[in-house]
Write a protein that binds this DNA or RNA. Structure first.
Ligand code: DGT
Ligand code: MG
Ligand code: MG
Ligand code: ZN
Length: 570
DNA sequence: GCCGTTTTCGGCCCGACTGTTTTCAGTCG
């Protein structure tokens, strides 16, 4: 699938056009097209073949032609041209904060800046500051940008971001008289990775709040501290932005600061079409504020039903909210159990008893123990003898403990040859069977997975793409084919809730559901703490627009058993 | 470059901060 690489090309074309001083709305058009392609789960070449590219909002004739060109020739002429005109890595410098395309172009033309080294040089000699429209403060800000750029890191995992934000919010609540405080930005939307942590607050003395904020024990460095906003770097160079607003604007500010940017723009356009104006200060009719204290009122007054933060991505939610047709998203409290957990029998630190006790504290009705199968030797996969011993222990525990009900499962390996790592005679005895690929990532994965789904005892395919957010692309796979077969066979596809997997991701889980596939969420817990990853799984399900009925973990155990393909009438 | 229950040209989100701006441009969130 070439979706992502084409998206990247359009983003680079946008950079180049900006650098060359092209019309900024043309630039916006390329960036929008890039975002559309990035969000698209369908293979762009399939759409191109069916002549449907231009039906995507934001993709018109010119861009559709460029997509087709790339698909047939492997290059886009326009992109090759601009690459020739602009020195190799010059545009990479646009990642430096406060250094934009105009300044970079000027520095290139007037001062011959072509690299980071050149840039530092002209800052040192003061020649950058002498350029028109430049000044001491601006150059200073670019210098700070370079410092951040040089210690640039990957986007943060949602788990790490959540932990830092949680700590910081608790600290501010304790040390100041804050009235309202909330995470905002991508964190409040539960995106799988977080660029920076955004926090919004309101309280009696904004100056004090900001001072206390900058004195956070884990703060490594204060980047900015004014009266209404401040930024710090916490351990590891993670940036946290705090914004303080008046209580009367808190709702509108939360709406603004939660984003996404594309969602905000849609909302502001709707306001405009109604003769209103939306900003972080409120909804205005002329000079009069008619909403702003409360976030829900902002949506209401614009004629939209409330849009949960998780789906504010301009992926169709605005249109549906206008028609009051948004699905009622699944909630964490509706989850009755965890359907993917490991015990000390394979490679986990937690015993079955410990998992059960922890799950009980979560109020779960059931948990499914799914240790690795025999050929996954690196994870102590269970040969049948140990599996039977495990089942005996589960029987004992179920007698002893009232809740949760411990279910016998396995995470059976789909072997290189496409067969399963246990015979049907064993799978048949399980309460539920999870199957997954653990080796041969590039070897006929689609075929092997589809074959596994044909097995009547296989209920769930775990981590269907095999990606690791921080480090691994995943399998070579035709996911749409997998979804098709999952729907046909009644196999559930997993949202693996582990924060470095989140697999299926939001857009793919949404596509799976649209193809009629049920989703199961599993934490893949390898210790007690792992049980807590469920929140990321639920958030991903919400980002996939799923309702309770679409997620099998919301079923009672009785209903869950009845929903298995072996128990369903043909 | 895209788009149209204000349609095929003329708009395209809105505000804060900075600079040397005399009415606006660049950068960012
Ligand atoms: N209206 C409007 N809002 C914006 C714009 N840029 C950013 N915002 C709002 C929406 C964002 O979610 C919010 C925080 O900005 P960030 O740059 O931190 O983005 P966000 O947190 O969404 O993603 P991130 O993970 O930090 O990259 O500010 C903009 O150009 N216009
Ligand atoms: Mg952010
Ligand atoms: Mg931010
Ligand atoms: Zn597992």
């Amino acid at each position: 699938m070439k979706n992502k690489e084409i998206a990247r090309i359009f983003d680079r074309i946008a950079d180049a056009l900006e650098f060359q001083g092209a019309n900024r709305f043309r630039v916006v058009a390329y960036r929008k097209a890039a975002r559309i392609l990035d969000d698209l789960t369908e293979d762009v070449s399939v759409l191109a073949q069916a002549n449907k590219l231009e039906s995507l909002p934001g993709i018109g004739h010119a861009i559709a032609t460029k997509i087709a060109e790339y698909l047939s020739t492997g290059t886009v002429k326009k992109y090759e041209e601009v690459k020739k005109e602009i020195p190799g890595t010059l545009l990479d410098l646009l990642d430096i904060q406060n250094l934009g395309p105009k300044t970079l172009a000027l520095a290139y033309k007037e001062l011959g800046v072509e690299s980071l080294k050149d840039l530092k040089q002209v800052i040192k000699t003061g020649r950058l500051e002498e350029l028109p429209q430049m000044g001491k403060q601006k150059v200073d800000n670019i210098r700070k940008g370079i410092v951040l750029y040089e210690r640039a890191h990957e986007r943060l995992s949602i788990a790490a971001a959540e932990e830092i934000a949680h700590e910081l919010i608790a600290y501010l609540k304790k040390e100041t008289r804050i009235k309202h405080i909330s995470a905002a930005g991508s964190l409040r939307r539960w995106k799988e990775t977080i660029g920076d942590i955004d926090i919004l607050a309101t309280g009696p003395n904004s100056r004090t709040i900001i001072t206390v904020f900058t004195q956070f024990p884990n703060a490594e460095r204060v980047l900015a501290a004014g009266t209404t906003k401040s930024s710090i770097l916490v351990r590891g160079g993670v940036q946290v932005d705090l914004r303080i607003v008046n209580a009367g604007s808190y709702g509108a500010a939360l709406q603004y600061f939660t984003g996404s940017k594309a969602h905000n723009i849609r909302l502001r356009n709707i306001a405009k079409s109604k003769g209103l104006k939306l900003s972080e200060y409120g909804v205005f009719r002329g000079k009069k504020q008619i909403a702003g204290r409360n976030e829900r009122d902002v949506y209401k007054i614009l004629g939209l039903i409330y849009v949960p933060p998780e789906i504010r991505e301009d992926r169709g939610e605005v249109e549906l909210a206008l028609k009051n047709k948004l699905p009622k998203l699944v909630e964490h409290r509706s989850i009755r159990g965890d359907l993917h957990m490991h015990s000390t029998y394979s490679d986990s630190e937690a015993t079955i008893a410990e998992l059960a006790t922890a799950a009980d504290a979560h109020g779960y009705e059931y948990i499914l123990i799914t240790d690795h199968s025999q050929s996954v030797t690196y994870a102590h996969g269970l040969e049948p003898k140990r599996l039977y011993a495990q089942w005996k222990e589960i029987d004992r525990l179920n007698k002893k403990l009232r809740t949760p009900h411990i279910l016998k499962g396995v995470e059976v390996d789909i072997r290189r040859d496409g067969t399963l790592d246990y015979p049907d005679a064993i799978l048949k005895e399980c309460d539920f069977v999870v199957a997954a690929i653990h080796q041969g990532f590039k070897h006929k994965v689609t075929e092997r997975m589809c074959r596994a789904m044909q097995n009547p005892y296989v209920d769930i395919i775990a981590h269907p793409t095999g990606r690791l957010i921080s480090s691994r692309e995943g399998y070579h796979i035709d996911l749409h084919r997998v979804m098709e077969v999952a729907a046909k066979t009644g196999t559930w596809l997993e949202i693996n809730a582990y924060w470095d997997r989140l697999d299926l991701n939001d857009t793919n889980a949404r596509a799976a559901h649209e193809q009629g596939v049920s989703i199961s969420i599993g934490t893949d817990a390898h210790d007690i703490k792992g049980i807590q990853w469920m929140k990321f799984g639920v958030a991903t399900a919400r980002r996939a627009w799923l309702a309770s009925k679409d997620v099998v973990n919301t079923y009672t155990l009785k209903k869950l058993r009845a929903a298995r393909k072996v128990n369903r009438k043909k």
